[in-house]
Design a binder for these strands. Sequence first.
RNA 1: CGCAGGGUAGAGCAGUUGGUAGCUCGUCGGGCUCAUAACCCGGAGGUCAGGGGUUCAAGUCCCCUCCCUGCAACCA
Length: 552
Amino acid sequence: MAEKSTYYITTPIYYPSANLHVGHTYCTVMADAMARFKRLRGYDVMFLTGTDEHGQKIQQIAEEVGDTPKEYVDRVVADIKELWSVMEISYDDFIRTTEDRHKRRVQEIFRKIYEAGDIYRGVYEGWYCTPCESFWTDTQLRNAKCPDCGREVVRAKEDAYFFKLSAYADRLLALYEEHPEFLEPETRRNEMTRFIKQGLEDLCISRSSFDWGIEVPIEEGQVIYVWLDALSNYITALGWPTVDGTPGEHDKYDKYWPADVHLVGKEIVRFHSIIWPAMLMSLGYPLPKKVLGHGWLLLDGGKLSKSKLAEAGQDKARRNIVDPVELIERYGVDALKYFLLREYTFGQDGQFTTETMLQRVNSDLANDLGNLLSRTTGMNDKYFGGVIERPVALFADGPITSAETAVDVAVDARDGELIALALGAAAKVERHMDSFEFNRALETIWELISRSNKYIDETEPWTLAKTDGDRERLGQVLYNLAESLRIVSVLIQPYLHWSSEKIREQLGLDSGAVVWGDAQVFGLEAAYRTAKGENLFPRIDIEKEFASIAEG
RNA sequence: CGCAGGGUAGAGCAGUUGGUAGCUCGUCGGGCUCAUAACCCGGAGGUCAGGGGUUCAAGUCCCCUCCCUGCAACCA
């Protein structure tokens, strides 16, 4: 037997200069959904996230609050890990660039690229703000002043090491040409192609003006500058390149590299699709299969930023919450996850407002899904004491596994329609997930939920309940609804883990035993013992909610 | 200046290779009473930013104009 297929997915490693906002959450939630989906499909998944902890900015912030950089990032990283834990982010490894396993390998990478002749010593020249001790490029300056403090900057130089990025322009263009799937969406690839054709400069990869970083292995007083350090995490976490020769050191590298997808925000597509492959080319390592750039969540038409966050706190009447911790405390993990995955089109920017999220949660989660479960279990409890057997009349030949059979076999056209839709959903979800269309995957599942709600209205179980002779049909209807909900519980499992479990609980199913193939079988359960529980998603009174948010 | 995207119903968005303009929310009307005042059905609402062109046929392809946004080497 062949080994299980592997799937390696990464998020960027976040910069812990401050706590994360809902934009970081967006990226991580997508990666988590994909990782869970692939696991459910039987892949051996490696899902990596982490933090990029070096650099001048963190050194400065730590000094301001009187901490060492390490103390400072330890605290922020603890919060980040706590957030991922609350959100049930199923990462397999969390790499911190301050960890020894990373630092030693980054130095090894530096050495190898140096030995390959792609690193040389030169002079970095830029605008320097003396009070901030920061270098800035021409375009970073604001009105020719320091963008941080607004004070004068001076032209300054320092010795530094450079990576011969310019030497890789042709090979990068060839990569995009021969493997367009390497960089998606297409618009990002167009941007990068243009960018390369404008001419690549060599990349400054070390600094001597601050010391919070990994030391350059061949010279004291220089630390490795961001990209070489940060991008390397995708292989250092897998134990590559080898530095200590311990048995099994690079097993994960052998197994999972090259990565199937680096999920990144559109603003760092350039680093992942130009610098990173160039580094790997220099090292002679295989390239990742895909870099995928997602869009941004926008707040009031602009990107999420600290100043925006401050403003957001000012507008009491319709304050937008962008702190994921607060969103989760108020509305729950699945509400946030569902909204992020359902509302936005991958690759494009989208407006984020708390009001839109609450509307989405009310209509899709409370009214459609929660209510469907409530009415189904409620009627089953009321009419059958919660116990319902698989109706022999409908499943005389056993469970149904194809939509065509469903339509042929069904005694009632509405049954056939419902069953056919339920059986076809999994394949559609798979197709949409293959192209990272989370919104469409969820849309597909919600078509089944809507059809189920409609099925209740069409079959009118409350009318059937009034006549003894209709009792058999009533049982069929409720069984079909339970089966439909069971399939929903499988389909939503990668996205709404918590809800999936709650639904299965109320249906009397084992929560731990979700198998994807079960979504392609109708009539699987021989009997249901349902028990109506608490409402999955209580309706939110949006006006009252805003009043409460304003009081804060 | 350069490069890359957008402009589609009141709001937010979909619209593969050109073939009757869709979805969600909201709104209006109706139905139902199992359910979380939820659910189901139906209606109204768009000269697809503007102009020109190609075509039997253009939201879709080509040209021009206007408006918005992103990138330009440390922002998810």
